[in-house]
Each structure stands twice: as structure tokens, then as C-alpha cells.
Amino acid sequence: MSETTRAFAVRLMQDVWETFDPAAVPRFYRADMVGHHRAQALTRDDVVRRLEWDRLHFTDAVYDIRDIVADTDRFAIRFVYACTLVATGQRFTTEVNYFYRLRDDRISAFWLLSDADFDYKATA
């Protein structure tokens, strides 16, 4: 396992996803990256919009990382995501698996599998 890549994965979760921080996205994702979630092809702008949407609709987010598998140019991360839905106050939980490809020390591609069906491109 690449410790450098594993450390990158941990920083990605801490700096971008746990804080829902769209300003941190350029430090981790290449401008030309391509993401995949079900039938959706995603851009870096879609990642930014997803974080903005999440910030408005979720609170008390917890990312329980269960496993990280890393090599020099790729990693997979499996976690259980839990949050409170702002609209209803109900707790929501889903298991998520991301597979990332790196180029020039940033994400060039990712694939997302989740047991929850959602629109990655949802807007506020």
C-alpha cells in the first residue's frame, strides 16, 4: 500500500467531504477529472455543486471509514455515511464505496457505488 496515497485519501475526506468545503476541491481534483455515478458522468464542477447541496441539506455528518486500499496512482475507500436530513430531522445512513484514479497528485477519475440511489447533480 502506498502510504502517500493513503494519506491523500484521509486528507480528501477531512478537508473536502467532512467539512463540505467546495473551496478545497481544486487541491484534490484535477480540472479535467471525470467521475461516474450510476448513469451520470460527472465533472469537477459537479463535485463542487454536490458539496454545496450537501451543506444545505445535511447536518451532523459522520464518515465512518471502514477501509482504504491504496496504490501509487489509485485508491479505494469504503465508509458508512450518516447524517441528519435538515428537511425532516431524520437520521440517514448509507454505505459508500469510491474508487479513485490519480494523476499528477490529484484525482483524475472516480467511480462511486452506494446503496442509496441519489442524483449526484442535484442543485440547491
Rank of each mutant, 00 (worst) to 15 (best):
F58I: 06
R44E: 04
R49T: 07
W111K: 10
V80F: 05
R78A: 14
H57W: 07
D60M: 03
V80E: 15
T72D: 15
Q14E: 15
T5L: 01
D15L: 01
R11W: 06
I68F: 08
A41M: 12
F20D: 04
R6K: 15
D15Q: 14
R11L: 06
E18L: 14
Q90S: 09
I68D: 03
K121Y: 03
T4A: 13
V48R: 13
D46G: 00
T5Q: 01
V10C: 10
A70V: 03
A39G: 11
Y63C: 00
Y120E: 04
F99Y: 10
H37D: 10
D117L: 12
L85G: 04
R6L: 05
S2H: 02
I107Q: 03
L12F: 04
W53T: 00
V62W: 02
R91Y: 09
A82M: 09
A87Y: 05
R11K: 15
A9G: 01
D104I: 04
S114I: 02
P22G: 05
D60Q: 11
D15R: 08
G35W: 01
D54F: 13
E52F: 02
Y98C: 02
D117H: 09
Y63Q: 09
Y120M: 00
L113W: 07
D32L: 06
T93A: 13
H57E: 06
L56P: 04
L113S: 10
I107K: 01
R50S: 04
L102M: 13
R91A: 10
Y81Q: 15
E3C: 08
R27D: 15
D54Y: 09
M1T: 12
D104W: 07
R11D: 15
Y98W: 07
D60N: 14
N97K: 04
T19S: 13
Y100F: 15
T88S: 13
S114Q: 05
T93C: 12
D32A: 06
D115G: 03
H57D: 07
G89T: 03
V25Q: 08
C83V: 14
A31T: 11
R30N: 13
Q40G: 03
V69N: 12
T5N: 02
F28K: 04
T88H: 08
D67V: 01
E95S: 12
A116H: 13
V69M: 11
V80M: 08
I65S: 02
F75T: 01
L102H: 00
N97T: 14
A70L: 06
A70T: 06
P26S: 05
V80S: 12
F92D: 06
